[in-house]
Amino acid sequence: MSKIVLRGRKVVGGVAEGEAFVTRDTISGWGGIDSNTGTIIERRHEKAGQSFKDKILVFPGAKGSSGYSHFFHLARVAGASPKAMLFNKMTAKAALGAVVTRAPAMTDFDRDPLSLIEDGDWVKVDADQGVVEITKKAGSKPATPAE
């Protein structure tokens, strides 16, 4: 099993590990997720019908309504939020959503997490140290670094 290490900037501190939930589509809070289950509900989203609950959510960034943070906040209250968040594009929505989710979160990576992490990989996030450690799931081919 190969291990990959990514470095990035802390958005919200803390340490968490779990299975990766990876999407290349941005996520909308209001109108985009079901806060009670952590399920993506947006009609044409590639992960429509799947839940990020207790997973390490790897995504490009936030989009849509200013209700974004409130719906992630409600997901935390319902126990349906992700264990950690890794995203590429910083916006006010993405930052506030991560803050009120109160799970470790990181951005500004040295390599693109979307090209290195796949669904089901085991991901350890140490946001305080700015380090993400990825253990590829058994059977997956080694990821090619995106250089």
Binding site: S66, G67, A92, K93, V99
Partner: peptide
């Protein structure tokens, strides 16, 4: 910026928001 419920709540009683964006 496109703020959220929590940040505008905090801004309403402090008159502050991050200088960003």
């Amino acid at each position: 910026n496109t703020e959220g419920r929590e940040s505008t709540g905090a801004a309403s009683i402090t008159g502050k928001i991050p200088y960003w964006g």
